[in-house]
């Protein structure tokens, strides 16, 4: 499965819930304000690394660029574009968390 998260982890429980209910083989795609969870040097960095222990974590490059944080993404988070987003949804069932 693929879990979409579109809210900042400081604003919403979406990412925490997605990671809690997601099976270990499932991926998490951060987009819109969800991409702030992927930023390094933050209070959330340790937590996102923990989540990455169980899940592939993707962040949408278009939204990272828009927010000026594409050069500060935690190592191991996979930056993807909209065409990759489509591929991931093609390969996985998808649930949207906010």
């Amino acid at each position: 499965m693929l879990h979409l998260v579109n809210k900042s982890p400081y604003d919403s429980t979406g990412l925490e819930s997605a990671s809690k209910y997601a099976g270990k083989s499932s991926g998490i795609l951060l987009f819109e304000d969800g991409v702030y969870a992927a930023m390094s040097g933050t209070a959330y960095e340790d937590r996102i690394k923990e989540i990455m222990g169980d899940h592939d974590v993707y962040a949408l490059k278009e939204d990272l660029d828009a927010r000026g944080i594409a050069d500060r993404v935690v190592d191991g988070v996979k930056q993807i574009t909209y065409p990759d987003f489509v591929d991931l949804v093609e390969q996985n069932k998808v649930a949207s968390w906010s």
């Binding site: 499965m1 809690k20 209910y21 997601a22 099976g23 069932k93 998808v94 649930a95 949207s96 968390w97 906010s98």
Partner: peptide, 17 residues
């Protein structure tokens, strides 16, 4: 519980949240 939620979700086709 959470693990049962996870298993239940794996059985579904679509999710409307």
């Amino acid at each position: 519980d959470a693990s049962e939620v996870e298993a239940l979700m794996e059985e579904q086709k679509n999710f409307f949240m």
